[in-house]
Every structure is written in structure tokens, then in C-alpha cells.
Amino acid sequence: MTALSKSWERAVVPLFILAAWEVFSRSGFLPAALLPAPSVVLHTWGDWIFGFDETSQGNTGRWVADALSSATRVAAGYGIAVVSGVLLGIAIGWWRWVERTVEPTIQMLRPVPPVSWIPLAIIWFGIANKPAIFLVFLGAFFPILMNTIHGVKTADRNLIRAASMMGATEQQLLRHVVFPAALPSIFAGLRIGIGAAWMLTVTAEMVAVKSGLGYVLWDSYYFLRYDLVLAAMASIGLLGYATDALIKVLMSAALHWQHGSTLQSREG
């Protein structure tokens, strides 16, 4: 199959949905303001990005700034979650005493939905970036942590034997054997984590912050601008897709040694 016909395959379903939606909106079955047609959304979105005719009113030309402030919160909270989740995950997976002392607390905090931390986050951090970053961290931390622990625990102990036969110290075992062995699982956690990170930035922005895509989304809802709501949703979806794609690229670079040996490597 050629590359061209493959990308065509991917586009079929979205194009069909868009076309059906356009037709439905224009049919007048619902008031146009309640379900704006894709062409209308695209127009508003274009103005939000490039600022050509102020259809998006106060938001005109401010998309890059909005997207950036959301992305910064994601990057900050996610970054903290990656570093702490991987390090703590390795420690819990490797040392029994760390597991015994830390794991029960973690397991109790884990089922608490991150959004339920919003009141406390606002009290502690005020209305600004920090509560959003905190929420993003909470959302991304647990999947990364759990997957890292799993990766460490399922590392092949024969590889650890082989490395200690070659004189590896404990620290070297962790760095040169356990970490790379856990990497496929860690990446699985990173991909779940990035989805949670976007979800929580948007949630936080709807409640606790006065900027970003989530804020625009919620604000437009109050002003009955459903075209902007949809444009914001599409923006979030697109950025989430892009960051996940980035992680996938990193993953296939880091796990290139799996090529040819896993089911996943069949993907073109």
C-alpha cells in the first residue's frame, strides 16, 4: 500500500463526519447558534488565530498566547510528574522497604480524582498558574508512577544476574539494566499521563485560572458563543494529539530495538 492511500484512509472518517455535520447544521433542524457548522467554526477559529475580522470578538488574534499558556502549564506539571513519577517508581519497584513505607499512602491517594483537589489547590496556590500546574501534576503522576513500578518489577531478573556477573554495582544495575528494561512500560505511562495532563489543564482553566484554551472555552459558553467553544475544543484536541505524537516519536526512537519483535512494530 502506498503512503498516499494510507493517509487518505486516515482522513475518511473525519471528513465524513465534518460533511454530515455541515449539512445537518445548514438544514435548519436546530438553531444555527446551538450547533454552528464546521465552516463557521473554522472561520471563528481563523479569526481567533490570525485576527482578521474580529468574529471572535475579544479573543481575536490571541490564540497563540492562549495555546501557549495552556501548553506551558501542561509542560510544567507534566515535567514534574515525569521526573518524580519515574524516580519514585524505580525506588518503589526496586527497594522493598520503600515499597512498604510509601506504597500504602500512594494507593490511598490514587483513587481520589485530581479534580477534587481543585478547592484545596485554589486555597493553597490562589488563582493563577500554580493550581493548574498542581492539577496537571496530579493527573499525570499516578499513571507514570504505576507504569514505572510495573516496568521495574517485571524486569527480567536474569539480565540483572548477567550484569552483576559483569561487576555492576546497585546504582549501575538501576541505570544500565532496570531503567532500560522498564522503559517500554514507562512510555506507556507517559502516553496515558499526557492525556490526563491536557484534560486537567483545561479543567483547571475553566475554574481556577483566567487564561488559556480552557478559560476561553468556558468564557465563550457564558457568552453563548458555541462556535468558539467548538474551536477551543478542536484546539485542545489538536494540541493533545500533537504532544502525544511527539511522545510517540521519542518512544520509537528510544525503543527502536523492539522493531521486528513486537506486534506494535507492524504499524507502518
Partner: peptide, 21 residues
């Protein structure tokens, strides 16, 4: 009193690091 590089071991399964060439 522990494994060490003065004794090389070859295992029944080769036990190679799959991520290294």
C-alpha cells in the same frame, strides 16, 4: 561472597540486553 567479573558466566538463555546491539 558475591558475583564478580573475575568469573565469567554463560547462561542457558543468553540473557543479552535486548536494547543494546
Amino acid at each position: 561472597d558475591g558475583p564478580g567479573a573475575d568469573r565469567g558466566m554463560v547462561f542457558q538463555q543468553a540473557n543479552l540486553m535486548p536494547w543494546l546491539p
